[in-house]
Design a protein around this nucleic acid. Structure first.
Length: 608
RNA sequence: GGUCUCGUAGCUCAGCUGGAUAGAGCAACAGCCUUCUAAGCUGUGGGUCUUGGGUUCGAAUCCCAACGAGAUCACCA
């Protein structure tokens, strides 16, 4: 139909087209124009006939007419004057409009013509968004909490890209401090020269083992001191291991060659381990910063702040920021001995990043236990003159809890990232074998499929919940491949590809076929509608920083497709035009499913 | 105690810029494979949306209060 065939109209969302039409009707009938807020356009609920619903109550108020009468009048007008509206019905104050089938078919053609449908590509002039995520400590391996962080950060980066931003993914590695010295000291004392090579243990796990060892031995020493009658607080400070660790930190700061060498060696082990974990998870970074290289810059920034009168130096030479005017407390920035704190380092990192990139927006993916920290950081960066400081985004996500409660590394209730991924993949393999899905595959194909499925189950499980909320992860029950899960969506995709493969093998044409002569089913129309909602969904996910919106959309789409697939045959349809239409619909459903899952960092297998 | 989150089915979660009879999945039960992949589809049961007020034509959604859960208020990172 010509009225929607111009590319401009097609790109316009259905909602805005309807808005325009209703506004025109109102102008014609009542000589008024309706503002955005008054005109409520929404998807018609499943149990009513129609595609789009206009809520008449607000309008009725403004025009002092009954909602039903208004709806009837506007409905009549649209049906007569707008080719797009084929039917309407009025129920109470709701005007339900049915949109002509041709509009949906044209919409599908337009979608089909866009390989990157729903994704806004960035240009050289697009805003530059930097996303910091992961941010590990180099004294222990990554765990379930890090997995949520990494998945959210990576997905968020993809979503920002899809909304037309240039994105730099960055990682700030916390590679210095007393906690690192603890691992180093324990390794020195109890390690007997063990290396990842000599033990066959992954580097980050090896170092983590010595961090645990430190804690065990330290506790023993405290116990001994307490038995000697020393109060617990004092015992914690005076235990020989703690004193040695502190001495080691001093030597590190004084650039002691032997300590520095040990530090570098052990950090390299950890990085090699992290690399494996990151690769397995499918996340990566464009630029990595190390706190050992940023904290000195932070000190400089703070000193400059003192010189400018932004910060205050106290008689004991410690430096403070007075935030009482902002409704917060005073915040320490440098200790009296001149050493830096967490905040100092973040300021230094910010400075280095600003030097490296012309950042327009900075997003920190960090857990919600640090809300206060980022509130303060935002104010401090603003005071120091960083233009994005005031508007920095703290993407604050909730904790991952186990059914027994919080994870505690000291109590051994931490779910290790590597172990968890392995388990998911193993389970995926078992399930696939039980279902006989791998019978036709080479071992390499099987390994690839099983890896994609296992990771999808994990990633989707974590990403489908609202990032802000705390979530519960049950290691046993969360490994599910049915229902609202990643593998369900993958399966739908693999199914579609299978149909498309068969179509192509049979040389079935999907292009240039005759126009449809019969009415489409509700299922087919609603599937087009859902596919058509993808761009709006991507935009919404970008605005609200929420991968969960994408995940839930993908699930809805997969479910809708499966219903269609179940009710209608595609390849066996004898009407050529209808068959071509269904293939086109299938192809675009697959395309959008793939794009959506890509935004979540989930790979799709071509068969499973 | 101050500040900030959160409270929806037995469990895990959607819905929240106010709209029609509050939705999924899991678990339970009952159906559907000689037909394009049954990791699928269909159906049944399951709810005082924590409680009490307020705003309104209309509240799970907005406001206030109470109760409950969590986070934070470090010269730890």
């Amino acid at each position: 139909m010509h009225i929607f065939s111009s590319s401009k109209t097609i790109i316009m969302s259905t909602e805005s087209i309807i808005r325009k039409a209703v506004n025109q009707a109102a102008q014609h009938l009542y000589a008024i124009s309706i503002d955005e807020d008054t005109l409520q356009v929404q998807k018609t609920k499943k149990e009513f006939e129609g595609d789009v619903t206009i809520v008449m109550f607000p309008l009725a108020k403004q025009l002092r007419q009954s909602p039903a009468a208004l709806a009837q009048a506007i409905g009549d007008y649209l049906q007569q004057n707008d080719e797009m509206i084929s039917k309407f019905n009025v129920i109470q104050g709701f005007l339900n409009l049915s949109i002509a089938q041709d509009y949906w078919v044209e919409t599908l053609h337009a979608i089909d013509a866009q390989p990157t449908f729903g994704l806004k590509l960035a240009t050289e002039n697009s805003p530059l968004v930097m996303i910091e995520y992961s941010s590990p400590n180099t004294n222990k391996p990554l765990h379930l909490g890090h997995i949520r962080n990494n998945l959210l950060g990576y997905s968020l980066a993809e979503i920002m890209k899809a909304n037309g931003n240039r994105v730099v993914k960055t990682n700030i590695v916390n590679d210095r401090g007393i906690h690192i010295c603890k691992s180093m000291l324990a390794w020195q004392k109890y390690g007997n020269g063990a290396t990842p090579e000599s033990t066959g243990i992954k580097g980050d796990h090896l170092v983590g083992d010595y961090y645990v060892k430190f804690d065990q031995e330290y506790k023993k020493q405290i116990q001994i001191l307490i038995e000697k009658g020393i109060p617990e607080d004092q015992a914690k400070k005076e235990a020989p291991l703690m004193l040695e660790a502190q001495e080691m930190l001093r030597q590190w700061e004084a650039n002691d060659p032997a300590i520095r060498h040990l530090w570098e060696t052990m950090n390299q082990w950890v990085y090699a381990g992290f690399d494996i974990t990151y690769k397995a998870l499918g996340v990566n970074f464009d630029k990595i910063y190390y706190e050992s290289k940023t904290y000195l810059t932070g000190k400089q920034q703070v000193e400059e702040g003192v010189a400018k009168g932004i910060f205050q130096k106290r008689p004991d030479t410690s430096v403070w920021a007075d935030l009482t005017a902002d409704g917060l407390d005073e915040k320490l920035l440098l200790r009296a001995d001149g050493t830096s704190v967490y905040m100092t380092q973040d300021i230094g990192t910010a400075k280095l990043r600003y030097d490296d990139y012309p950042i327009d927006k900075m997003i920190y993916v960090v857990g919600n236990e640090q809300n206060y920290h980022f509130q303060v950081l935002s104010i401090l960066l603003d005071k120091l003159g960083f233009k994005w400081g005031k508007d920095l985004v703290h993407f604050s996500y909730g904790m991952v809890e186990l059914p027994e409660g919080k994870m505690k590394s000291r109590e051994g209730t931490v779910v290790d990232a590597d172990d968890l991924m392995d388990e998911m993949i193993t389970t995926a393999r078992q399930t696939s074998e039980e279902l006989g899905k791998l019978d036709q595959c080479t071992p390499e194909e099987a390994a690839s499929i099983v890896r994609k499925i296992g990771l999808a189950a994990l990633k989707y499980f974590i990403l489908k919940v609202d990032p802000r909320k705390n979530m519960t992860f049950n290691p046993k029950e969360s490994v599910d491949f049915n229902g609202n899960t990643g593998p369900f969506i993958q399966y739908t995709y693999a199914r579609i590809l299978s149909v498309l493969r068969k179509a192509s093998e049979a040389n079935i044409q999907t292009a240039g076929s005759a126009p449809l002569t019969q009415p489409l089913s509700e299922k087919e129309i609603s599937l087009i509608q859902l596919v058509n909602e993808f761009p709006a969904t991507v935009a919404e996910a970008g605005n609200s920083y929420s991968p969960a919106i994408i995940a839930n959309y993908a699930y809805e789409l997969a479910k809708e497709y499966n219903q269609f697939y179940h009710d209608y045959s595609i390849l066996k349809e004898e009407n050529e035009a209808l068959r071509a239409f269904r293939l086109e619909l299938s192809r675009n459903s697959a395309k959008v499913l793939q794009s959506a899952m890509h935004l979540l960092g989930i790979e799709m297998p071509e068969r499973m």
